[in-house]
Design a protein around this nucleic acid. Structure first.
Lengths: 127, 127
DNA sequence: CTATCTGCAAACGTTTTGCAGATGT
DNA sequence: ACATCTGCAAAACGTTTGCAGATAG
């Protein structure tokens, strides 16, 4: 009974929740079509924005510029390689761990945060 | 005596260090030209990448997709509004504060991290 | 009947790439 | 000479927008 969400939005949210990994807008679109719930790419992006602003969906940028979306509940952070672009999940979030006490001045309302560590993975580390 | 950097790279690094704020590739390019150190946009991006992989420069994505660069020493994190896109600096980094103990499996070599909080600023907060 | 939502295709803006010429060793 | 670096313009990429038609209330 996700309050205030349209059918389309629930549809998209479901795909995200079902997926084992974060999805880009393009992937979401493709996946939706394959599931028979066809929808235009523009629609996907439009609804993703709504979902995000409703606090149901988070996203993060890859170095490539791609945006990856996931349900808000899933609190994943990553180590990302600047060379090959692959990223592996951080098992724990150091921020949440100590009871995130971020000074949010002047009524800033936080919806989600991303903690990304960039560097070189074992494969790409120079010598 | 920045080791291993070309003149061009030092030039770019200097502009970043001099600037009071993070700069996008475009801004950097424009600023460089205004300072008489003209350089092509492609060159700016090419050298930014080298600087980043040399661990001298960090970057973060705005929701708009723009990349903002700053010197690595400057450890800035932000509250960013999903509505209007503005972001204000977080004065302290909760990660560094507790002596960042991130599990870096299999020889991942971290260069920098970004902690971004997304939500609504006071102006854009719905009702 | 009016407001909202959709798909399509065109537009956008930033970043990347190809290439030929410049630069430096 | 040779490898590297540069500027330019074209291409690429994911995302956004305009618009006309579909849908919902």
């Amino acid at each position: 009974m996700a309050k205030g969400l349209s059918d389309r939005q629930r549809q998209i949210l479901r795909i995200l929740e079902t997926s084992s990994k974060e999805l880009s807008g393009q992937e979401l679109h493709k996946l939706g079509c394959e599931l028979g719930q066809s929808m235009g790419l523009a629609t996907v992006y439009r609804n993703l924005r709504v979902l995000q602003q409703a606090g149901r969906v988070r996203c993060r940028h890859l170095p490539s510029g791609e945006l990856l979306y996931s349900p808000l509940e899933r609190d994943v952070h990553h180590l990302t390689c600047l060379e090959c672009g692959t990223s592996q999940p951080l098992t724990s979030c150091p921020v949440e761990q100590q009871g995130l006490k971020l000074p949010t001045p002047e009524g800033f309302e936080p919806l989600f945060h991303t903690l990304e560590v960039f560097g070189y993975c074992a494969k790409c580390k120079p010598e």
